[in-house]
Amino acid sequence: MTRILVVDDDPHLLRALTIALGARGYRTSPATDAVGALRAAADAPPDLAVIDLGLPDLDGITVIESLRGWSTAPIIVLSARHDETAKINALDAGADDYVTKPFGMGELLARIRAALRRAAPAEEQPVVTTAAFTVDLAAKRVTTAAGETRLTPTEWHLLEILVRHPGRLVTQRQLLQEVWGPRYEKETNYLRVHLANLRRKLEPEPSRPRYLVTEPGIGYRFVPDPPAG
């Protein structure tokens, strides 16, 4: 049974989330503050986390960063903060999605299903190899000269889409629709943050990307190494 860590300091919302998720077959680990959330995650590692940023003891960003230190489970942020900076900070800390309050329960549940699908094991596929990194699409594993590189589920999904279309331009709209859904076609800041993170992890020179190339204002392209000889 899929376990979801649910963190919110509003007891009424926390109860509503717990009931809604339980009714759909999810097992929940509820918490009202950051310390309780981290303790609950340590006791029973979650398959996904839903985290409010406005917690009474520590900011939700701290919880995200702490979880990202050892877990690749998808993280969905719940927050009343609507400004772009808050979204970028949460995504940069390791969140995979951002839902602003008030929100519809149906929408949140759809986001949870989508995040869990992205994190599910992929069907067996070939290995994509470059001089800088290797992507094993079947095992959902990326390695560099330094060893295996941990990616968040969203980072993995973006990389997977790009490497499955070597040399082809994948538009911002295509990536946003496939990874986050049609309502996020204009959230290009999501792409900027996650592609920057991927480059830091995979590119020999992240500021001058060789493999994960931006086509300004249009989209992104995976550029494989030229054939030997």
Results as ranks from 00 to 15, higher is better:
75 I>A: 04
41 A>K: 10
93 A>T: 07
43 D>K: 01
87 K>G: 12
44 A>N: 12
59 D>V: 01
81 R>K: 13
54 G>P: 02
30 P>S: 05
51 I>F: 10
27 R>E: 15
70 W>S: 15
47 D>F: 01
84 E>W: 07
72 T>V: 13
32 T>P: 01
33 D>G: 05
21 L>G: 04
28 T>D: 04
96 D>N: 14
69 G>E: 13
63 V>F: 02
39 R>T: 14
94 G>E: 00
31 A>L: 03
28 T>K: 02
31 A>M: 03
60 G>T: 11
49 A>L: 08
65 E>Q: 15
44 A>E: 14
53 L>C: 12
33 D>C: 08
35 V>P: 00
70 W>F: 14
40 A>K: 09
25 G>W: 09
81 R>F: 11
63 V>H: 00
84 E>D: 13
60 G>P: 12
99 V>R: 02
76 I>N: 01
89 N>R: 15
32 T>I: 11
42 A>W: 07
43 D>A: 15
95 A>D: 01
41 A>H: 11
56 P>E: 09
89 N>L: 14
83 D>S: 04
96 D>P: 08
98 Y>H: 09
97 D>F: 05
72 T>R: 13
29 S>Q: 13
25 G>V: 10
42 A>F: 07
61 I>L: 15
53 L>K: 07
23 A>W: 06
76 I>A: 03
65 E>A: 15
88 I>D: 06
86 A>Q: 02
73 A>H: 09
82 H>D: 13
22 G>V: 08
37 A>R: 11
40 A>Q: 12
39 R>P: 01
51 I>E: 08
47 D>W: 00
35 V>S: 14
53 L>G: 11
36 G>E: 03
24 R>L: 06
25 G>S: 08
78 L>M: 09
25 G>N: 10
74 P>T: 02
27 R>P: 02
66 S>P: 00
54 G>K: 08
68 R>K: 09
30 P>N: 04
31 A>E: 03
92 D>A: 15
53 L>V: 11
97 D>T: 07
54 G>T: 05
73 A>N: 11
40 A>M: 10
54 G>V: 01
37 A>H: 10
